[in-house]
Design a binder for these strands. Structure first.
Lengths: 168, 168
DNA sequence: CGATAATATATGAAAAGGAATATATTTAAG
DNA sequence: CTTAAATATATTCCTTTTCATATATTATCG
């Protein structure tokens, strides 16, 4: 393992960086450059990374945004439904909800009819916060898709929806 | 916080689950259902999740696959380049490489010309492993895109490449 | 050249995430 | 009704990731 030793000097300060993504070599034959899962991951990481930076600037942790965004337009979801929609594992969601509940962004109600389930709803404070964030998110999306025609946008989103809806 | 108490009974056994993704309600007006970043994340998580399950079945940790896949077709990359390409933070990559080096999948060479940089190359063992995995990945991608025409595939990949290449 | 800034990688403490499992409740079998 | 299986959420423990910073080397500027 490479190691370093004695006297040190400089340091970074801002939020930790993901090194700038390198463009593929000219006449590239790299596997990843034509691998769908890689293109999806990278496009997603790149676009989301930008918005996450905006959230960080406003001191909004990811789970707060994700949970409230997913709850928007619903009349409450169970822990499991939230986890699925937020792409979290269930234990991760339970812990995120503990924080969000203490902070007053969501409330847990025992779902009527089945006392195993917990219905999670956004509080007024949560709804107020997410309204502004959704506006920001839409503005950001518009910038991301600035150079795409309406048709292209529609095709892209439909293609993604087909991937999501696909049978395993 | 909701809590439970006394005697317990059942348990799960397989790998931890992401609860099944719920389809959008019928005449949905949910924000996320038309939000590009969400569609990207979910399509990516869904497709990658399937392949990751194959990797888990073969006891291959994610970073081993990612690093070797990214190194494929290159003559070695620096730690920072690898981190960027693998969508990892740099310290995460350093630690992943520590493991991969010990296990014999990659080797660190001090890059000539600039002794700060470390050039990482796949070993024979690494290349042998990744060859099979890439074949699996291609087969999986074919299944994912089974119901898409050649034109649709091309358009989708090109759209993703445009997102990746986009100026911030 | 010598000092200071910049860049690349590594390290350590702390937080987050995940697999396995415990607990609570409901459903199904008999 | 009673018991066993299934389902939903919570909790524990352990690994991995991340943030902040240290270390090593190179570039720049006077």
């Amino acid at each position: 393992m490479a190691s370093r030793s004695t006297t040190g000097k400089r340091a970074h300060r801002g939020a930790a960086k993901r090194a700038p993504l390198l463009p593929p070599k000219a006449g590239s034959r790299r596997f990843i450059d034509d691998y769908l899962l890689y293109l999806l991951s990278r496009a997603s990481a790149m676009a989301s990374g930008e918005f996450h930076a905006q959230l960080r600037a406003r001191k909004i942790p990811l789970p707060r945004w994700r949970v409230l965004a997913v709850l928007d337009g619903t009349d409450g979801l169970t822990v499991g439904e939230l986890a699925a929609a937020c792409l979290f594992k269930q234990p991760t969601m339970t812990k995120a909800l503990d924080r969000l509940e203490v902070e007053g962004y969501v409330a847990r109600e025992s779902a009527k009819g089945d006392r195993r389930r917990v219905r999670v709803v956004a509080t007024d404070k949560g709804r107020a916060l997410v309204a502004g964030l959704i506006a920001e998110a839409k503005a950001h999306e518009a910038r991301v898709l600035k150079n795409h025609s309406a048709t292209e946008k529609k095709h892209l989103k439909n293609a993604l929806r087909r991937l999501i809806a696909r049978e395993t």
